[in-house]
Amino acid sequence: MPSASVRRSAGQISGEDIVVEAAWLYYHDGLNQNEIAARLKVSRATVVNYLQEARERGYINITLAAEPFTNHRIAHELCGMFELRAAYVLPDGAGGELEQFERAVRGAANWLPSLLAPGDRLGVAWGKTIYDTADQIEPVTIPDLEVIQLVGSMATPYGFSAEVCSSNVARKLGAKCVNLHVPALLSTPQIAAMLRKEAIIAAQLEAIDRCNKTLFAVGSCDHDSHIVTSGIASHADLDWYVAHGAAGVLCGRFIDAGGEPVRGPLDERMIGVEPTALRGKQTGLLVSVGQEKTVAMLAALRGGYATHLVTSRTTAEHLLSLAERAETAA
């Protein structure tokens, strides 16, 4: 809530004060909308508008405690199966996969600040999941936090680039941002090698090595996945990697079912974090939703890239079932 005082005298409350007053009565004093309307001598619809305006102005920050989402049975099963330190599992709701996705990114945005500490170096991946997570983070300042872009820039069908993902996370967390000012994929390995040696690019790649925490999603190896629609891989490239064991995509790189990198014709042309450099972090926060993502999620979890997971209940159930079937088959 803002610190500006609210006039409570018998006179008419107006302007910004009435928005603050309505928000205070609703969120702090616990009055319902009809009671507030009577108190302020306005209609209930006007109260609804005041509350919406308060949220849009950033006067209201609504957060949910992590414990109810990390302490139930499925969360504990995920931690036991994949040696995670914590899993944040959101209820599905009634709106299908889109609602599950929206809830997951809100959950990740709510949880992320509590997983960070002053002095951390947070590596941030790319994609719609990360972009939407950044959009949902409530502004907060974490002292001496550095946010580092993990993958170079690429085209995207969503209207944003990789550097926007990292920049938005940094802006919401009051952090310094280190962007990677180079394309994710170059036309030849020789050009990529030359760019890696440029002083500014070399310094940005060194910053990636300093990350102690990461925020990332995983992509599937389907032909409509982000790795193809962003222009990183052609359909023929995707088929080559799948034929050589690829099961998922992590920060633009292909990994197999055990989480090991699948090296191929694109890798020497790429600039960004190597999958093996994402292992062993203090925190690796994986955010993914959807049955079509469970094969890739399982690969990332087996590979040891994640210490924390945010997903939906249905996705969690599919993931556990997939892992159990794989264990039985082995």
Rank of each mutant, 00 (worst) to 15 (best):
G259W: 02
L98E: 14
L320G: 02
A45D: 11
K176L: 05
T141V: 13
A54V: 11
V169T: 14
Y59M: 13
A87W: 09
L322T: 10
A233L: 09
Q52A: 10
V105T: 14
L98T: 14
I60S: 01
T229G: 06
L286A: 02
K281E: 02
A66E: 14
A326L: 06
Y131D: 04
D222I: 01
G290L: 07
I130E: 01
I227Y: 04
Q282F: 06
L285Y: 01
T294E: 09
G290I: 10
N168K: 15
I227M: 08
L64H: 15
N168A: 14
G127D: 00
K213M: 03
V169D: 12
Y59R: 04
L250Q: 05
I60R: 07
E206W: 05
R269E: 08
T328V: 07
A199T: 15
A86N: 13
R8E: 04
V89F: 10
H226Y: 13
T314K: 11
T229L: 12
Y59E: 06
E292K: 09
V273N: 07
Q190V: 05
A22I: 07
L64S: 14
V6I: 15
E67S: 15
R263Q: 13
L116V: 02
V295C: 00
A193P: 04
S166Y: 06
K293Q: 10
L173G: 10
E67N: 13
V310H: 03
R121G: 00
L115D: 09
P139S: 07
S288H: 03
T133Q: 03
L285S: 03
Y27A: 00
V262Y: 02
V164C: 01
A306Y: 09
C251I: 08
G174E: 08
I200H: 12
D132P: 01
A104W: 02
I148H: 08
R171I: 05
S167F: 02
P139E: 05
G304C: 11
A94Y: 08
L185Y: 01
Q136D: 01
D144G: 08
T283R: 13
T156F: 02
D239C: 03
R39W: 07
I18E: 12
A299M: 04
F101L: 13
C251Y: 04
T46A: 14
C177Q: 11
S114K: 08
G259I: 02
M154K: 08
D29V: 02
N110A: 01
I232W: 07
D135K: 13
A75K: 14
V295E: 06
A243M: 00
A277D: 11
S230E: 09
R8L: 12
S14K: 14
P2N: 08
T276C: 09
A94C: 09
A75N: 13
L98Y: 09
V19S: 06
G93M: 03
T276E: 15
F216I: 03
H308Q: 12
T156E: 06
I18P: 00
S220Y: 10
V164T: 12
V42C: 10
T276R: 14
T294H: 08
N49H: 09
E292G: 00
H318T: 03
M194R: 15
H308P: 02
D29A: 04
L78A: 09
L185P: 01
A300M: 02
A54L: 11
M297N: 00
V89Y: 09
P113Y: 05
D29E: 13
N34V: 14
G252C: 11
G93I: 02
A117S: 15
V147Q: 10
R269W: 07
M81V: 07
Q204S: 10
E21L: 10
R106V: 06
E292V: 02
H28D: 13
W126V: 05
